[in-house]
Design a protein around this nucleic acid. Sequence first.
DNA 1: TGACTATGCCTAAGGGTATTATGTATGTTT
DNA 2: AAACATACATAATACCCTTAGGCATAGTCA
Lengths: 110, 110
Amino acid sequence: MDSNKKFLNGTLKTILLALLRENGQMYGYEISQMTKERTNQKLLLTEGAIYPALHRLEKDGLIVSSKEKVNGRNRKYYSVNTDSLPEIDAQINLLSQFTGHLQALLNLTL
Amino acid sequence: MDSNKKFLNGTLKTILLALLRENGQMYGYEISQMTKERTNQKLLLTEGAIYPALHRLEKDGLIVSSKEKVNGRNRKYYSVNTDSLPEIDAQINLLSQFTGHLQALLNLTL
DNA sequence: TGACTATGCCTAAGGGTATTATGTATGTTT
DNA sequence: AAACATACATAATACCCTTAGGCATAGTCA
């Protein structure tokens, strides 16, 4: 079973923004683990997807990073750029609306 | 305003399956118009996306097509392959679950 | 009649992005 | 010592949507 990985395309960046907006500060590995736990392994954000997406978001100025050493290991914390909050919220709202439309279309079938 | 086109990636095929499963028989142009009307122009399935997706679904054996001439114009009707109904329902359920997970993640932010 | 719009199908170039696989390094557990 | 968890990263590949165009028929309007 390939789960629902194929649905992730396009939504990943917005998911990351939503998580960072909620939790204030997170690092990649943490995001990967947290989403896995929260969705009972159903929604897997793999590292090969997460790290490039975080890099793109930082390059686009929507998030900022800072490196810290914790227990001898390097962590790279990300958080939303407060200047971009309006744009971030707009994106999150768009995704929310999109899932709403999808649910409406899908429910007709049930 | 590029609306939420970017979220479509990966979900389009399943959307098409859900629509065909509901309506029994549809043609590409009809799908394009219907989704536009139902979502108040918010969810636009463009022809450049719809037709290749329908072709892939037919090639994969999930749907079948038949050509008809209506009012002098050619229509290509698609409908689900009943042999594939279990797989189709499974896919639709996966997408439904995925949107559920998304909503859960997004709602935490509101 | 000529121009425009709606209907209806299709394809191609291009870019964006997730998958899969792999590499590096440190700390912890067995 | 080996294995596993933590933590970052990149590359090849393939997928697939966007944008832009092309073709054809029917109806409308000046």
